[in-house]
């Protein structure tokens, strides 16, 4: 464990806490893409298949349970909670995310570290996570005005993988066998998707103005 990875995990946790806060405090999920949240449930379930077989550390197991539990809770809330589901902007959340699932799975069948069930699903989860934010970013562009909590949620979500890139660079120079090229390349693509969001987020922060994404 290094400081970059720990910072990345904490930033990821903060993004989830901000989203849960928004939904529970405002009893609203307006501006949140249910499709992105559903993709994250698939990402965590596919990635943490080894939850009960490989024990790495208490921290690792606890964080996996938190990520799986929170992503399921968010999807449940947006689909089933009487007050929250009414605020879901279904007509704005139109990205055909099934193609992202299919594409990621096909890519995982072609590009993986080892042709085993667990490794295929691990690579699938890495590729899917890279594109999972797309429905949310498209929805933000459509809805134009972004409320603070939603903006902070997307910001922390983007920042976490940026910390992971620093972690991979650090591990590359400090660990002889380290080679996570699948996660690294996918993480770079993932963070690149946030580039324009980060730019407009920084502009709005600098001008102390509301976050406006050009339609």
């Amino acid at each position: 464990m290094n400081i970059f990875r720990f910072a990345g995990d904490m930033t990821h946790l903060i993004s989830i806490v901000v989203l849960l806060l928004k939904i529970y405090a405002t009893k609203s999920c307006s501006g949140i893409s249910l499709k992105t949240q559903e993709l994250y449930v698939i990402v965590f379930l596919a990635r943490y298949l080894d939850l009960f077989t490989d024990f790495i550390s208490v921290y690792n197991t606890v964080m996996k349970l938190v990520f799986i539990g929170s992503s399921l809770a968010i999807v449940w809330c947006m689909r089933m909670h009487r007050a929250v589901k009414r605020t879901y902007d279904k007509e704005l959340d139109t990205f055909r995310h099934y193609f992202l699932v299919l594409g990621s799975f096909v890519l995982a069948l072609l590009l993986h570290e080892k042709f085993t069930f667990q490794e295929i699903f691990w690579a699938f989860s890495i590729y899917l996570e890279a594109v999972a934010i797309l429905p949310q970013l498209v929805m933000l562009q459509r809805s134009g005005n972004v409320d603070n909590l939603t903006g902070q949620y997307v910001f922390f979500l983007g920042a976490y993988r940026a910390f992971y890139i620093l972690n991979w660079i650090y591990r590359f120079f400090t660990e002889p066998h380290f080679s996570r090229w699948i996660a690294c390349l996918s993480g770079l693509v993932q963070t690149a998707f946030y580039a324009d969001f980060f730019y407009y987020y920084f502009i709005s922060w600098k001008n102390n103005a509301k976050l406006q994404l050009p339609a």
Partner: peptide
């Protein structure tokens, strides 16, 4: 080296 066998990152 077994460190490639499992993924120690989240």
């Amino acid at each position: 080296e077994d460190d490639d066998d499992f993924h120690d990152e989240l």
